[in-house]
């Protein structure tokens, strides 16, 4: 099997802090690997090693079969990096940024200009092309940053939380761009804090926590493990919570949890359960303040896989503890 990039047993320490504790990541050519994890899980450190910006303390990583330490120069020819913070120059214009990248990639000036124009048009930045980047909005910066990564037509692109801080419409734009890149044969490593995003884009997902991979699989496999979609319900009258819990339990076949006071959440297998729940709530005369069907968020994933939430080193409260409060207790 040929991998576009592959990391094996990566360990990275910063002083006493272990950022990576032996992590394995790999993606075949033309696929998207989603790396899902909370802040501080080691996502950015792994990306920086694969992008030749950091040397691992232990383990190896290759891109296109080339070692990221020994053959760093060659690896840099294959990759494009879009960091968590936009890696573009604030004082230069959009065009100047892209032309500079092109010239550093040894394009002739005319070719670099043409490429910059093409990418600016593609990312709908043509109108802002002559303005300094510091006047750009967050979404425009991200798009320019992506464009900068694409100037050299890399084989492998690292996208480190490309949609963090973007509004939902701009997030969908970035997703569209990632899909078209993959359609083009590019391999993508995408780090994210959103299961929804990994689910939408990734062929395989590695869930990481404290510098280790705690789960790996296709989105379908992973969703099977974490219970697929969840149904959230908040009855208008908090006194009807116990009745509502009974109804959800009957529909879903498992006891719902109460993550926060006054709401219930239960994993559901198919869409029919939503209509069933609505019908039976109506029959019971329970008015609903909020009812939604959603993919589990990062916290659900972590709770299922590790028994604690993302914020919680065991026992320190927060999400983990809230989740352990079962319906009955919450209602009392």
């Amino acid at each position: 099997m040929t991998y576009a990039f592959r990391a094996e047993g990566l360990v990275k320490r910063f002083g006493a802090t272990v950022a990576l504790a032996g992590i394995d990541l790999a993606a075949r050519q033309g696929t998207v690997l989603g790396v899902l994890g909370p802040n501080g899980a080691g996502k950015t450190t792994a990306v920086r090693i694969l992008a030749t910006l950091l040397r691992p303390d232990e383990g190896t990583a290759t891109v296109g079969g080339l070692d990221v330490v020994r053959d760093a120069g060659e690896v840099r020819r294959l990759i494009g990096l879009t960091g968590q913070y936009a890696s573009v120059d604030e004082d230069l214009t959009g065009t100047e940024n892209l032309v500079l990248i092109g010239r550093l990639l040894d394009m002739r000036t005319a070719a670099a200009r043409a490429r910059a124009r093409e990418l600016l048009a593609y990312f709908e930045l043509a109108e802002a092309a002559a303005r300094p980047v510091k006047t750009y909005s967050g979404g425009m910066r991200r798009r320019l940053d992506l464009a900068a990564s694409l100037v050299g037509r890399p084989d492998v692109i690292y996208l480190d939380e490309p949609t963090t801080g973007l509004d939902p419409v701009r997030r969908e734009d970035v997703w569209g761009i990632v899909r078209s890149l993959v359609g083009d044969g590019v391999t993508v490593l995408l780090t994210t804090q959103y299961l929804e995003e990994a689910d939408a884009l990734a062929d395989e997902i590695s869930v990481i926590d404290h510098g280790r991979v705690i789960a790996h699989g296709t989105p379908a496999e992973l969703k099977q493990r974490v219970g697929g979609r969840h149904l959230d319900l908040r009855p208008l009258d908090p006194a009807r919570l116990l009745d509502s819990a009974g109804i959800l339990a009957a529909v879903a076949g498992t006891q719902p949890e109460s993550p926060t006071r006054g709401t219930l959440t239960v994993p559901v297998e198919d869409d029919g359960m939503l209509t069933a729940a609505v019908r039976r709530l109506d029959e019971a005369g329970i008015a609903v303040a909020e009812l939604s069907l959603r993919l589990p968020d990062l916290d659900d994933v972590f709770f299922t896989l590790t028994g604690h939430g993302t914020a919680a080193p065991a026992g320190t409260g927060g999400a983990g503890e809230a989740r352990t409060a079962k319906t009955e207790e919450a209602v009392r």
Partner: peptide, 18 residues
């Protein structure tokens, strides 16, 4: 307009330039 990806053949790749 995100349907057509940028042309991937028009400009020399990094490898040639290096």
């Amino acid at each position: 307009t995100l349907t057509a990806p940028p042309e991937r053949t028009a400009v020399p790749s990094r490898r040639e330039g290096a």
